[in-house]
């Protein structure tokens, strides 16, 4: 069974996965008409930023055992063993946010969704694009990702690649060519740029917090 594997070090933060995810969960399945749907389709993958603005694709890990499943008050969260997918039953969900408190990755959002009854706010998260997979497709986020930060493969294959990387790392010569230089260069560039931008004046310190957009109303007690 193939699963989505996330490689955060390769993410360039283009957010195309978010767009693809929202479209994949729309009625029309096409970008332009999807924007006019109500409720408006929203992504279930969320690209955040690291301290140097490097991308971080944050997505449900479909944990086993899943903390959200154990915490769900009405028992709306279940595990589909065949696809290793943790699913939320929107009809049973009562929007209590107990899963928000349980999820260590912060990947669950609360809003209306086309899968739920109109006007009802429900917990929404990644469903591994089971509908696309049933039609021999792959998850939309993986299809959209051009930097291979998201891959769809068996966990065995992913583990083997990691094991190989560790094995190569014992040889200095082999390790040098092991990891793709492009992303490291890009991240080093982002880091250097931010440090240049932010180092001189302490008042500019705020700009260093790339993802802290709400700094305008800080209250320190």
């Amino acid at each position: 069974m193939k699963q989505v594997v996330v490689h955060p070090e390769r993410c360039v933060g283009c957010m195309q996965c978010q767009v693809a995810c929202a479209v994949a969960h729309s009625e029309a399945k096409q970008l332009v008409p999807a924007q006019f749907e109500s409720p408006r389709p929203r992504p279930r993958i969320h690209v955040g930023a690291g301290p140097y603005n490097e991308g971080f694709p944050n997505r449900c890990r479909h944990c086993d055992p899943a903390p959200c499943l154990l915490a769900c008050l009405p028992g709306a969260i279940t595990r589909v063993a065949e696809t290793a997918t943790v699913m939320i039953n929107v009809d049973t969900c009562i929007n209590c946010a107990s899963c928000a408190m349980a999820c260590p990755f912060g990947v669950i959002r609360y809003h209306e969704d086309r899968s739920a009854q109109a006007g009802k706010t429900v917990a929404v998260k990644c469903d591994n694009c089971l509908a696309r997979q049933r039609e021999d497709g792959i998850p939309a986020c993986v299809e959209a990702c051009l930097s291979a930060a998201l891959t769809f493969e068996t966990l065995d294959a992913a583990y083997k690649r990691q094991t190989d990387a560790v094995a190569r790392s014992v040889s200095a010569v082999a390790a040098a060519e092991a990891l793709a230089p492009g992303w490291a260069l890009l991240n080093a560039h982002k880091k250097a740029r931010l440090e240049l931008l932010t180092s001189p004046a302490p008042s500019d310190e705020k700009r260093a917090a790339g993802n802290a957009r709400e700094d305008t109303h800080v209250r320190h007690d």
Partner: peptide, 28 residues
């Protein structure tokens, strides 16, 4: 839940703590 996991797993918080005050953030 990310903050709660930090508390529950007693993870040392390095770097600027103020980052945790932003509404959206991640382990990275």
């Amino acid at each position: 839940g990310v903050l709660m996991a930090l508390i529950q797993n007693r993870i040392p918080v390095a770097g600027r703590r103020e980052r945790l005050l932003a509404p959206g953030f991640n382990y990275r």
